[in-house]
């Protein structure tokens, strides 16, 4: 269980690094549709940051279960 969560977290951050840098960010780098008033390109990064919070939380839960 713990190994699976660690692996998942590692994958998430590799994907994130690709998704927020060039060229990976290109398909999502548009103004519309606005998300909660923010341009899509902006909300895209915010989404990855919030997702990171969830992944960090899962790791915390998995590591603290002894």
């Amino acid at each position: 269980m713990r190994t699976a969560v660690r692996l998942f977290a590692a994958c998430y951050f590799v994907l994130m690094a690709i998704a927020v840098t060039f060229p990976g960010v290109r398909p999502f780098n548009t103004v519309y549709p606005l998300v909660l008033g923010l341009p899509f390109s902006f909300a895209w990064v915010v989404g990855w940051v919030i997702g990171a919070g969830i992944v960090f939380f899962l790791v915390y839960l998995a590591e603290n279960r002894r």
């Binding site: 951050f13 927020v20 840098t21 902006f42 990064v45 990855w48 940051v49 990171a52 919070g53 960090f56």
Partner: peptide, 19 residues
């Protein structure tokens, strides 16, 4: 403009290895 998104991007990426 969007150059500022870099500041938002790197924080959690940098924090991850600290797990």
């Amino acid at each position: 403009g969007g150059a500022a998104y870099y500041i938002l991007s790197y924080g959690v990426l940098g924090m991850a290895p600290f797990l």
